[in-house]
């Protein structure tokens, strides 16, 4: 998302675009992040991590940077950050 100016309430209202970071080898494959992402941007990957679980991977654009997966994940294995200008423009 590109702004021609920064919205005045951008501090309160988070309409940011996010980047999901997945630390694959920490994942235990519970699927909670996949099931409850409000934008359904995640899915199980086919690959195994070092402990034999299928970690999530990004299947679609649209991460809101809502941090919900980050809070719900029991393993510190997924989190989101705000997309930088370059990332958001992609």
């Amino acid at each position: 998302m590109k702004y021609w100016r920064v919205p005045l309430d951008s501090e309160e209202v988070e309409v940011t675009q996010g980047v999901v970071h997945i630390i694959k080898d920490r994942c235990k494959g519970c699927g909670y992040c996949i099931e409850y992402c409000p934008r359904a941007v995640l899915e199980f990957s086919k690959e195994f991590n070092k402990n034999g679980y299928h970690p999530p991977r990004v299947r679609a654009e649209g991460c809101l940077n809502c941090h919900y997966c980050e809070l719900l994940c029991p393993e510190f294995a997924i989190f989101s950050t705000e997309a930088t200008a370059e990332q958001a423009a992609v």
Binding site: R26, K28, G29, C30, N51, C73, P74, E75, F76
Partner: peptide, 21 residues
């Protein structure tokens, strides 16, 4: 010490994450 001992799908890690947050 991570990965912790909690089983796959155990909610304790989620509550712990909420607490740390």
């Amino acid at each position: 010490r991570i990965p912790h001992i909690w089983c796959s799908g155990c909610g304790t890690g989620s509550v712990f994450t909420a607490c740390l947050t």
